[in-house]
Design a protein around this nucleic acid. Structure first.
Lengths: 160, 160
DNA sequence: TATTGTTATACTCTATAACTATA
DNA sequence: TATAGTTATAGAGTATAACAATA
C-alpha cells in the first residue's frame, strides 16, 4: 500500500507538510496575494479590505455594507472600517437608502472611480501574468477543480 | 472580443472580484484553512505556526530553527516564538549542535510525539474529505496546476 | 423582536530591526 | 564580517460583543 503521505509503521501515520494540501494551498495563496498586495498596498495605499471594496463598487455602482461583506467575503466590522477609511480618503460616498434607512448606499466618488480605472488594468495584468503559466484550458480546469474543493471544504467547516 | 472580465467601454477594463483568480484563491484558502484550524486550534490548543512545526518535527525527527522556517514557510521570528511556546508546553526540546553552536537541534518530546500521533490522522482525514470532491486523477491535476501557478507567482513577486 | 451598521475592547499577529552568541 | 537565533517595540489586524437606529 503506497499513499501520498508515507506510512512508516503500521498504524503510525505520517504527514509530510510539503505534500499536505491545506499547506500547499496556503503557501500558494501567500505568494499570489503578496504579489497582488505589492500593487494596492505599495502604489495605492489601500489595505486588502479597502481594495476589495473598491473593486466591488467599481464594478457594481452601488451596494449596501451588508452586500459588500457578502460579496467580498469579509466580516461586517472589517467592511465598516474599510468604508470609514475610504470615505475619509474621499474615494467613496455613502447615502441613506430612502426605502429602508437602516441600509446605506455606497458608491465610488469620481476620485474613487479614477483610482479604480488606474488599478484595475494593473491588477488584471498581474492575474494574467500568473495564469500565463497555464493554457486557457488548464485555467478553466483549475478554476473548476478549485470550485469543487471549495464546496467540500464548506461542508467540512459547517460540520466542525 | 470577449474575456473573462467584462469590458464595458473601450479602454475601460472591469474587474469582477468573484472571477478574479487571486480572490478565488484567497477565499478557497480561507475556508480550507479554517476547517483545519478547527482541529489544531480547537482540540489541541496549537496555533497555526505551532501546528506546522509539530508536523515538521514529527515527520523529520530533528531540524534547526532555520530549516524549520524554510520548511514551514514562516519567518524566523514566528518560528522562534512558536518554538518557545512549544518548549513551554513541553512538546519540544532544544539542544545545541555541538559542531556549530549557533544552531540548535529541535525535536519532539515524547509528549510532542504523542500529540503528533493524535492529530495527524485527524488532519489527514480532513484533507481526504476535502479532496474527496475530486477523483485521484483530478487531485494530481490540481496539484500540478497549482505548482505551475506557484512558480509564475514567485517570478512576479521577485520582480515587484 | 429582528436587522443594519458602528463602536469599544482586548487580544493576537506582524514587521522592522536591534541584539546576543557563535563562527 | 557573516550567520543563527532571540527579543523589543510598535503598528496592524482580529474577534466578541455591546450599542444605536430603523423596521
Amino acid at each position: 500500500m503506497t499513499t501520498k503521505h508515507n506510512v512508516k509503521h503500521k498504524g503510525d501515520q505520517q504527514l509530510e507538510l510539503t505534500r499536505y494540501f491545506p499547506h500547499k494551498l496556503s503557501t500558494l495563496n501567500m505568494v499570489v496575494s503578496q504579489s497582488i498586495a505589492q500593487l494596492h498596498l505599495g502604489r495605492f495605499q489601500l489595505s486588502r479590505q479597502e481594495w476589495r471594496i473598491l473593486a466591488a463598487l467599481g464594478n457594481h455602482r452601488s451596494m449596501s455594507a451588508k452586500e459588500l461583506a457578502s460579496y467580498t467575503s469579509q466580516e461586517k466590522m472589517q467592511v465598516s472600517r474599510a468604508i470609514a477609511r475610504l470615505k475619509h480618503a474621499e474615494l467613496l460616498c455613502q447615502q441613506e437608502d430612502s426605502n429602508d434607512r437602516r441600509y446605506s448606499l455606497l458608491s465610488l466618488t469620481e476620485k474613487g472611480k479614477t483610482t479604480y480605472r488606474k488599478i484595475v488594468p494593473l491588477a488584471l495584468a498581474r492575474e494574467e501574468f500568473i495564469l500565463s503559466a497555464l493554457t486557457e484550458a488548464e485555467q478553466e480546469q483549475l478554476l473548476a477543480l478549485m470550485e469543487k474543493v471549495h464546496e467540500k471544504a464548506d461542508e467540512l467547516q459547517q460540520w466542525g
